[in-house]
Design a protein around this nucleic acid. Structure first.
Length: 561
RNA sequence: GAGCGCGUAGCUCAGGUGGUAGAGCAACGCACUUUUAAUGCGUGGGUCCUGGGUUCGAGUCCCAGCGCGCUCACCA
């Protein structure tokens, strides 16, 4: 990691301290101001004297190992089995069977425990998410092998050959013949019993979290299974996986604030995409009738247990389909993914069992009526939703009952209906629920309902109390689309920073004819949360965004009291 | 952005009403050839998040700040 030239990702710094600060901000080390100058000359950046002394002791052990004929950083080990394969094949074998067969194996892994016992000792290897005990004794590995064993530390990678047996307590164990040193842990591992528990350290040092806390590994194995299942579903139904721009001149396709970046040669600002939607629909215009994309979106907004500034979304579009088709598809897709990933449609989230095989459907208006809180008085009735006065009245009833929500009297009635829905219904939508028919004013890209032009053919689905997906019959009338964008611009003028921007090229694409199309986006991080029972989005993102951890020299001087 | 909670050794944590910092694991040394949170004896290890204040004296009390977590708001 340490690079002496004043270069960082192609940026040349004339002021070295500026480079240090930027590197610190990038998280590659802790900038410690003046103390840094001396530490820079060390072979490693230490966080404490303790760490430095451990590091130096272990460098000395490496030298001793070299004296024993071991390479300090060898480049391969030919294992005969992974540890999961050993368990799969021999967990059922008895001690007698192992004694007769005398199965010899070569396995490698990270040492997670060492129990030395004079001229013998046990150790535990971890690899591939599994653990296996090894037994090393002087009369089996010889003087040199045993000397090496004594130089090992918890965290080191080693390879061993030997035969399988069961110990007195019945544990499957490798009786080691030869010991090969593979790589040293120069830093001490966290405490072996409690592991790494500090939530901040776990997110910041995921590399440690992953090998110290096995359930973390499981979550990310399942996340990969989710992606695999989604691709399997769409690939087998004739959808083409595509990749569309993440750097866009106009950030469109969603109501959100974008990140801005800059291209030097073209000297132009670009936005990191907030959604791939408009590009995917251009592809449907181009004749790619069924497309999907799974990748990152970026939204320059708050961070919470359900929001990370970059998150992964699946979006798919299907020509000749409408939102009803997508409702059925959604129910089938979520069940399919659950079965592929967990082998069951049941999952537990926030201590509640959720059955992904049973879905409910409400229109947004029905949901508001159904979940209307008792303390807010009379339930709204359908006609009240039809005009601004009715909506204002129900908003006041709700407000007066003490439910806070963002009512904006100047905004279109539809915006307030959507706000009321979120305030009264969202928390109740624990079991899989589809909410359909959204107000036109919050849906600039959806097709209107033929018989109710103030409402659109759009649905969202909720599981665990939050939104996982959003779908609609796509608006394909270029003239109407241009009007919608114009209305959004007016909203933007009014101060709505998330109102949609005008995208003339997209309107032009519609001018060439978009077939009737259904499209949907599903939050993969949130889906993974549901399927793994993870309460925070940070638990399903390997490296969630964290504030850079700058130490004292980086901080603003505190004002004196 | 607001409220609440947390921040002490590499890690996990103790430190009533202020009196000068502790344990376990990890590390180092010694003993131990079927242990498994191995065991026994010994040693070293601290900017008590940062800055300021009160006080004879602050890990502890007060103020400000930083970081993280949770809840709320915005958002998917």
């Amino acid at each position: 990691m340490l690079q002496l030239p004043c270069l960082l990702r192609g940026v040349e710094f004339h002021d070295r301290s500026a480079m240090y600060r930027m590197r610190a901000a990038a998280g590659s080390y802790h900038y410690t101001g003046s103390a840094f100058q001396t530490r820079w000359k060390e072979p490693f950046v230490y966080e404490s004297d303790f760490e430095q002394s451990v590091f130096e002791l272990r460098r000395d052990k490496l030298r001793q190992m070299e004296a024993l004929g071991q390479a300090s950083y060898p480049n391969r080990f030919a294992a005969s089995h992974t540890l999961p394969a050993i368990h799969a094949a021999y967990d059922a074998a008895t001690g007698e069977q192992l004694e007769q067969e005398r199965v010899t194996v070569a396995v490698a892994g990270r040492l997670m425990a060492i129990r030395a016992q004079g001229k013998a000792g046990f150790a535990v290897l971890q690899q591939g998410g599994a653990r296996l005990q090894i037994y090393v004794r002087l009369d089996a590995v010889g003087e040199q092998g045993f000397a090496l064993y004594k130089l090992l530390d918890i965290g080191d990678h080693i390879g061993v050959t030997g035969y399988l047996f069961r110990t007195r307590t019945g544990e499957l164990t490798v009786h080691v013949d030869t010991l090969t040193f593979l790589s040293k842990a120069m830093l001490p591992l966290p405490e072996k019993y409690h592991g790494l528990a500090d939530q901040e350290l776990r997110y910041r040092q995921r590399y440690v979290d992953l090998f110290m806390n096995p359930p973390v590994r499981e979550v990310f194995v399942k996340r990969a299974a989710v992606l695999r299942a989604l691709r399997k579903y769409f690939d087998s139904r004739g959808y083409l996986e595509v990749e569309t721009p993440m750097m866009q001149p106009i950030a469109g396709g969603a109501a959100a604030r974008p990140f801005v970046t800059h291209h030097n040669t073209l000297d132009m600002d670009l936005y990191l995409r907030i959604a791939p939607e408009l590009y995917l629909k251009r592809l449907v215009v181009g004749g790619l009738d069924r497309v999907y994309e799974i990748n990152r979106n970026f939204r320059n907004e708050g961070i919470s247990t359900q929001h990370n500034p970059e998150f992964t979304m699946l979006e798919f579009y299907q020509a000749y389909a409408n939102y009803h088709d997508l409702m059925y598809l959604t129910e089938e897709l979520i069940q399919f993914v659950a079965m592929e990933v967990n082998g069951t449609t049941k999952t537990t989230f926030n201590d509640v069992e959720i059955d992904l095989a049973h879905w409910q459907r409400y229109s947004m208006r029905e949901a508001i009526i159904h979940f209307w809180p008792e303390k807010a008085g009379a339930k709204p009735e359908m006609p009240e939703f039809a005009n601004a006065d009715g909506v204002r009245a129900m908003a006041h009833r709700l407000r007066d009952s003490g439910t806070y929500f963002a009512f904006d009297d100047g905004a279109p009635a539809g915006n307030n209906i959507a706000a009321i829905f979120e305030a009264v219904a969202e928390d109740h939508l624990i079991q899989p629920t589809i909410i359909y028919d959204f107000p036109l004013s919050v849906s600039p890209l959806s097709k209107q309902k033929p018989e109710e032009p103030e409402w659109v053919e759009r649905f969202e689905f909720y599981i665990g109390g939050f939104e996982l997906g959003n779908a609609f019959s796509e608006l394909n009338d270029p003239v109407e689309q241009r009007n919608r964008f114009a209305q959004q611009l007016a909203e933007r003028e009014r101060g709505d920073a998330e109102a949609h921007a005008m995208d003339e090229d997209y309107v032009r694409a519609l001018g060439f004819g978009l077939p009737p199309t259904g499209g949907e986006g599903i939050g993969i991080d949130r889906l993974t949360m549901i399927l793994t029972g993870s309460r925070s989005i940070r638990d399903v993102i390997l490296f969630p965004l964290m504030r850079p951890q700058a130490k004292d020299a980086e901080k603003e001087p505190a004002p004196s009291a």
